[in-house]
């Protein structure tokens, strides 16, 4: 039983299996998009605009007569990749900062702590809005904004993990054997701190999808005609009574995907038995 890695074991949970299935489905659809749909996401067919769901267009069409399901699938590409990439950057930087703070203590630690408290003093959406205003609209700006908005979370989590691990016997043992700082950090401390950080990164990806959608609502992020779930909802908000499906489906896609991430994350936490580790730094 232990031979299976935890992410697969999590699929064995009833909810975890369902959620993991949905996530795999969305990911597969995003990757295979061109083979799944006969429509292009960017070709307009103006006479077909504002069509409700039909056999030809399962979820209806948008204001340019484009197939909504097609755009939803391609939108998954943008939304998931932007969120996941942003969180990946955020995790990497957060781990470096957190580990450095915990390991060196003293002023680097104090500086990192103040910086963390600093970013936590602003709601994430505000950090993101201001950063995008500086960097400019488009996916890069949004990615950086999301990465910075969640940086504090991973820094703090990594720092707390390393702090507890620092005093443990195996670290002392390694030190006594003459291991250098780098060796201890990268071979002993970070790998042990990895599981909780990765799980919380996964949960944060869910939040990042929502944040990306919210920025898309303000017209920031992927530029037309490239679809993103947020951008689709933003266009749909002006059509809310004329063609409500244009806004309803992308919103459902976000909600269901984020629910799935949370459920799968819960299953993973149970499998890895790291609830206490996460709780301490929540």
């Amino acid at each position: 039983m232990m031979a299976w890695p935890a992410p697969l074991r999590a699929l064995g949970h009833p909810m975890g299996g369902l959620a993991g299935g949905w996530l795999l489905l969305v990911a597969a659809a995003a990757v295979l998009a061109p083979f799944l749909t006969p429509y292009a996401y960017d070709v307009q067919d103006l006479p077909q605009a504002y069509q409700p769901a039909s056999a030809a267009h399962w979820l209806g069409t948008d204001e340019f007569g484009r197939d909504l399901l097609t755009r939803l699938i391609y939108g998954a590409r943008t939304s998931l990749s932007v969120s996941a990439a942003a969180i990946a950057v955020s995790v990497l930087c957060g781990m470096v900062l957190g580990a450095a703070a915990a390991w060196f203590g003293g002023w680097p630690d104090r500086a990192v702590t103040v910086a963390v408290d600093l970013t936590w003093s602003f709601p994430e959406i505000l950090i993101a809005l201001i950063l995008v205003a500086i960097i400019g609209p488009g996916t890069t700006g949004v990615m950086v904004a999301i990465a910075v908005a969640y940086l504090a979370q991973f820094t703090r989590l990594t720092r707390a993990q390393i702090m507890t691990l620092k005093g443990e016997t195996f670290v002392e043992a390694a030190r006594c054997l003459g291991a250098g700082t780098g060796h201890i950090l990268f071979r002993h401390l970070l790998p042990n701190a990895l599981a909780p950080v990765l799980v919380s990164a996964m949960l944060a990806t869910g939040d990042a999808i929502i944040l990306e959608a919210t920025l898309g609502f303000f017209g920031l992020g992927a530029q037309p005609p490239v679809p993103s779930w947020g951008g689709m909802m933003s266009a749909g908000s002006a059509l809310v009574f004329k063609a409500p499906w244009v806004i309803i489906f992308p919103g459902l896609a976000v909600a269901i995907t984020v629910v799935a991430i949370n459920l799968y994350g819960d299953a993973l936490i149970a499998e890895l038995d790291i609830r206490q580790k996460l709780r301490r730094t929540a």
């Binding site: 103006l46 340019f64 037309p224 266009a235």
Partner: peptide, 15 residues
Amino acid sequence: QSDSIFRRLTEVVQA
């Protein structure tokens, strides 16, 4: 600009 009518018209111009 980000107003919905601008974005809609611009997408048609783009096409």
